[in-house]
Design a protein around this nucleic acid. Structure first.
Lengths: 148, 148
DNA sequence: TGTGTTTCTCATGAAAATATGATAAATACT
DNA sequence: AGTATTTATCATATTTTCATGAGAAACACA
């Protein structure tokens, strides 16, 4: 559904939301804890910083922090730099243009689902995922140590 | 959503369903009409033939035909050899195992959508797409010459 | 039997995604 | 100032996906 890189971004941002206690978190820490390639994650987070989703700081006590409150940060914003979730690439049969006016053979049946997927990413926030972890499946589910 | 190869498969099978009048259709014809790379499509269709979805015949008057009636041929069967639509790769956060018992942070919110997507591919048949073309958006929509 | 047509198969290539390693630049701390 | 730490950047490698090309195998037909 989303690329490896988009998945890294999602998991890393979720990690940041869960672990930042005022101080930035280093790429090393995140990469180690989430078993991701360190330098690759570095580039990925750097792009998110350029997009204004994270702040980055170099040097000792440096690292990454959320630049947006987690209840206002949608999954779409996190994944969008790495995956094309809407517009082009939306048509199941790969048409450059596919709309109600110029539908492909699958358009009318597929449209609703594609919109739901798009809506999911737009409407789900990082906070929603955290809330889900903290009891989404019942009051005593999980211990909060295994977010992704 | 699906790979380029899966998309080729989908469009080619739809083409076969629309154009076979008893005789096999050659890869050359399909590739030309749908603007696909000929040899690549050949390999793709060959795999569908091995899966029992198409029949292939060599030599003059050879080519490919549907081996399954189009009203019993689901999009899932066509795409599945090329794209992992369920099981692994289903978890939004990339977990090898992600279930109600061992949910990732997105599981409960994502599950329903993932199931709908899976159901779409399983339940939609090639015939459904053809029907869609022949008036799915209204009685006089389209002329049937632009399936995908 | 021969010829042309078509799939099948293999070898290779190109492009994109993913990943690694080395170095530069910035910063906090002593 | 000096040093260690950390991101930023560049170069490169690996893997996967997508694509091309040539020839072998099968087949229809004359």
């Amino acid at each position: 559904m989303i690329s490896q890189t988009g998945e890294y971004a999602l998991r890393a941002v979720l990690y940041l939301a869960l672990h930042q206690k005022g101080d930035p978190v280093s790429v090393e820490t995140i990469a180690d804890d989430l078993s991701m390639p360190r330098n690759y994650l570095s580039k990925t987070l750097h792009l998110l910083a350029k997009r204004g989703i994270l702040t980055s700081a170099r040097g000792p006590r440096g690292g990454f922090e959320l630049a947006v409150p987690s209840d206002r940060l949608s999954l779409f914003e996190i994944v969008e730099p790495f995956d094309d979730l809407e517009g082009r690439g939306q048509c199941l049969l790969g048409r450059p243009e596919c709309s109600d006016q110029t539908p492909c053979a699958a358009h009318h049946r597929w449209k609703d689902l594609a919109q739901r997927v798009s809506a999911f990413f737009h409407e789900t926030t990082v906070d929603d995922l955290i809330a889900e972890m903290n009891g989404g499946a019942g009051p005593a589910a999980g211990n909060g140590s295994e977010p992704g």
